[in-house]
Amino acid sequence: MTRTIAIMAGAALILLFATLMLVVMPYTQMAGAPVPDELEAYSEAELRGREIYISQGCVYCHSQQPRDPGFSNADQQRGWGRASVPGDYAYDQPHLMGTMRTGPDLFNIGARQPSETWHYIHLYNPRAVVEDSIMPAYRYLFRVVREPLPSDTVVNIPDPYGPEHGTVVTTREAKDLVAYLKALDHTYPVETLPHKQKGDANGR
């Protein structure tokens, strides 16, 4: 019995040590990271849109973390923006950094594609605006009506991607999601870009 307790205690201690290194220390360091002045907190609609982004699982194909130029320059060349810093995520709960780029990085999609109409068409059927796209269509975030009401936001889907009859209008979910996408704009400057150059082992 003593030996089993020793093994279990040893195993637990090692894990606690790892927790100290990989959870507690980064937390204390990053919690103190300065929040960029120009970073705005999300509005109510943007937060609801963020929940849609989560519930539709956008994170499984889109990252929100342009890479460090010392690591790879291509992200900047594609116009995805400067490398992100911990402060950029001050209002992100949970984080949506993502680890997959089946689709492009969305850290600055609001700045790169400011047109709401484009987003609506793209969400209704990605192939209507991007040839060969393999992104899922989110038609269920829209309604097809015979006669749109004055309060409806009409989306004109180019042929042949629209419905055979009726007009496509947005739902609140689609509007919230696009509001969130447009809020993804981190083009403001930040004080400290981490490890700007390759080989700067000190991370300054």
Binding site: L22, V23, P26, Y27, M30, A31, A33, P86, D88, Y89, A90, Y91, D92, Q93, P94, H95, M97
Partner: peptide, 9 residues
């Protein structure tokens, strides 16, 4: 764990 710290966790 908010933000970037959340990603490490």
């Amino acid at each position: 764990f908010p933000g970037a710290a959340g990603a490490t966790v």
